[in-house]
């Protein structure tokens, strides 16, 4: 019941913040309506980082407590994080085309970092799929997730240098939106969207976690079923052997 209330609340918040961002707030003077994409782009990027933070922390927790529920949290966060990362990249490209004139801007360190982030965690999820034993999978996934998390700051740093060692930033960054000098209407639109998205994220996390636990139960039942079947097959073989003796 609580989850349902959370879900309905998230839906209402997202709809309200969307109506505000799409219709009530005026268009940006320079970028026009394209700037409205920021209202979904920035929250997605924030939730991507939040998700991967949760994955890393849950991984540490698993290695410490050896509780498979923490592994389910790590999986849920990683999957939702990949979704938000993909959405952040896609919405960024939709914004980049009208404003920058290109979908992909190699000189933007955030874009390149985010693309690598997506690759890191898609790899993490594929790795989980291809490992069968739940405990082995949980421990290894935790370590893989941690190394990925350690790598992210280095990636960001290196990409920033790559562009910037001898050239200043040439392109207006989305972060200007958070400039305190920006009109408060824009700031409120963005902040309310971040809040709405975060509530929706929490609801997704709860649902995905429940699903992960059910999956784990199913996996365990299937394993027991295989064991029982093997035992039955063994008994039958024994009987045949006795009968033919």
């Amino acid at each position: 019941m609580g989850t349902r209330i959370l879900g309905v609340g998230a839906l209402l918040l997202v709809v309200a913040a969307s109506v505000n961002g799409l219709f009530l707030v005026p268009a940006d003077l320079n970028q026009g309506d394209a700037q409205r994409i920021m209202y979904v782009h920035v929250p997605s990027a924030w939730l991507a980082y939040l998700s991967f933070g949760v994955t890393a922390l849950a991984g540490v927790g698993y290695l410490w407590k050896r509780d498979l529920r923490l592994d389910a949290v790590a999986l849920s966060a990683a999957e939702i994080g990949v979704m938000f990362t993909a959405f952040a990249i896609w919405s960024g490209m939709m914004w980049g085309q009208p404003v920058w004139g290109v979908f992909w801007q190699w000189e933007d360190p955030r874009l390149t970092t985010t693309a690598l982030l997506l690759a890191l965690y898609v790899g993490y999820l594929l790795f989980r799929r291809l490992t069968d034993d739940p405990r082995r999978r949980a421990a290894r996934a935790a370590v893989v997730g941690l190394v990925a998390a350690v790598d992210i700051p280095i990636v960001h740093f290196s990409v920033e240098w790559w562009r910037g060692l001898h050239q200043g930033p040439t392109i207006g960054s989305p972060e200007r939106l958070l400039d305190p000098a920006a009109p408060s209407q824009f700031v409120i639109a963005l902040v309310s969207m971040v809040l709405a998205f975060t509530v929706a994220w929490a609801w997704l996390m709860v649902r995905r976690y429940q699903l992960a636990r059910l999956d784990a139960d199913l996996e365990e039942l299937a394993r027991r079923g295989r064991v029982a079947e093997a035992r039955r097959a063994g008994l039958a073989a024994q009987r045949v052997e006795e009968a033919t003796r």
């Binding site: 790899g123 190394v147 990636v155 740093f157 990409v159």
Partner: peptide, 11 residues
């Protein structure tokens, strides 16, 4: 798994 991690090294 490895190529995204070594991206900074390559760069």
């Amino acid at each position: 798994l490895m190529l995204p991690v070594i991206a900074p090294l390559l760069l």
